[in-house]
């Protein structure tokens, strides 16, 4: 009931919500791309035992580790690795989700099978499930990507299943059925284009979870091998030096990981809002 609504106050007063949302998505996306590109360009972090275990300074803003490696470069490298793993895992999980959603919507038995599968996967603690899959696949990047992918398809499957069921009842699908088009043709031509945006947003929403779970299992020792420059490895290494007061070994890499996860979260949420304006009215 105020004269000047909330969105017209403050810093971005000249922008409307749509422009602000788009701007947020673009900026966060840019930051992530920069981190990713920088990370892939860092190939060799020099070791220098003269400068080992140094606290953060202007020369090494995140400090150095016990081999004198610069923690900032290690962190950025680790983040880019996290992004790659996260990307792989979320894409695979979205593919699984899409396939299962189509299966579920095709007939009653498959539908109850998929719901049973969802129940099954929801009944084992996530981390334990990821550990088990990763162990079964021999750990490493492949094991982690598959493990994270196979434990994160549940939510998107639920969303897509409902969506596909709804589209299936529409008139043009009924018409295509009458014209004798195959189920596969209808799925490909009519349904898939309509749920593509949902799949895209779903993939993005899985991303932060994927990154976090990858670093968690790697930290526990069930993910990437200790030779990889992953954040989980960095943090698990840091455990040995914490008692000596080398706080920077754990603090900055973890914070950086948090920020990356947060940025992915922000992109996902904003995109979701753009496609589904109901929430914005709240």
């Amino acid at each position: 009931m105020s004269e000047n609504p909330w969105y017209n106050k403050g810093l971005f007063s000249s922008l409307n919500l749509r422009e602000k949302t788009l701007l947020t998505i673009a900026l966060t996306g840019l930051v992530l791309v920069v981190i990713f590109i920088c990370g892939t360009m860092i190939n060799n972090i020099p070791t220098n035992f003269d400068t080992k275990m140094q606290a953060p300074s202007f020369v090494h803003i995140f400090g150095t580790d016990w081999m004198g490696r610069d923690m900032f470069f290690r962190t950025i490298k680790g983040l880019s690795l996290s992004i790659i793993i996260g990307l792989g895992a979320s894409i695979i999980s979205s593919i699984i989700a899409t396939i299962l959603a189509f299966l579920a919507s095709s007939n009653k038995y498959l539908d109850s099978f998929v719901s049973w599968l969802i129940d099954l996967f929801a009944s084992i603690p996530h981390i334990l499930l990821i550990m088990m899959i990763s162990i079964a696949l021999g750990k490493g990047a492949f094991g982690v990507i598959m493990a994270v992918a196979f434990s994160h398809w549940v939510n998107l499957t639920r969303v897509l299943r409902a969506e596909v069921l709804q589209i299936n009842t529409s008139e043009y699908v009924a018409l295509s059925n009458k014209f004798g088009k195959s189920k596969f043709w209808i799925a490909k031509e009519h349904i898939l284009p309509l749920i593509l945006s949902q799949i895209f947003v779903g993939t993005l929403l899985v991303f932060p979870h994927a990154i976090m779970h990858e670093s968690s299992v790697t930290f526990l020792g069930f993910g990437l091998s200790p030779h990889e420059p992953a954040i989980g490895i960095i943090l698990s290494e840091s455990m040995s030096y914490l008692a000596m007061g080398a706080w920077w070994l754990a603090f900055f890499p973890g914070l950086a990981l948090l920020i990356v996860v947060l940025l992915f979260d922000i992109i996902g949420d904003n995109l979701k809002r753009l496609l589904d304006p109901r929430e914005a009215n709240n």
Partner: peptide, 9 residues
């Protein structure tokens, strides 16, 4: 968005 183990650390 924060990893549990990092908060612990």
């Amino acid at each position: 968005s924060s990893p549990t183990f990092w908060i612990g650390l």
